[in-house]
């Protein structure tokens, strides 16, 4: 972990860390190095990845429409709305 990678990660995650936070993140990453060694020591060459811990498959629903909440309810906690839209500063495309 270096400063340049950290800067990119901040950008990527829409965060701006203080100098002190940056230092502790870098320290955190260096602690994780040992963890990586632990993981590397485990032979996973012939092991399939396990995303889901329970072996169930194909959970699907029927194509049916239902509307649960109104726009007013969904926008009740919105910081800014206008004419039924959520609002953000002008986005340039």
């Amino acid at each position: 972990m270096d400063r340049e990678i950290l800067r990119r990660l901040e950008l990527l995650n829409q965060l701006s860390l203080t100098e002190q936070e940056k230092e502790s993140v870098i320290a955190f990453f260096s602690d994780r190095e040992k963890d990586l060694e632990t993981l590397d020591a485990i032979d996973t060459a012939d092991v399939e990845r396990m995303v889901h811990v329970m072996p169930i498959m194909t959970v699907v629903r029927e194509d049916k429409v239902s509307q649960i909440f109104s726009r007013e309810e969904l926008q009740a906690a919105a910081p800014e709305t206008d004419e039924g839209y959520w609002c953000v500063p002008k986005v340039m495309e």
Binding site: L17, T44, M50
Partner: peptide
């Protein structure tokens, strides 16, 4: 914030196989 930065890095193109995918396999082990 630290967890976000760390989690993001484990999913980066460079690290995905090395860390994230590895952990999914370790989970099975």
């Amino acid at each position: 914030k630290t967890a976000i930065i760390f989690g993001s890095e484990t999913l980066s193109t460079e690290n995905y196989m090395k860390i994230y995918d590895k952990c999914l396999r370790v989970r099975r082990v």
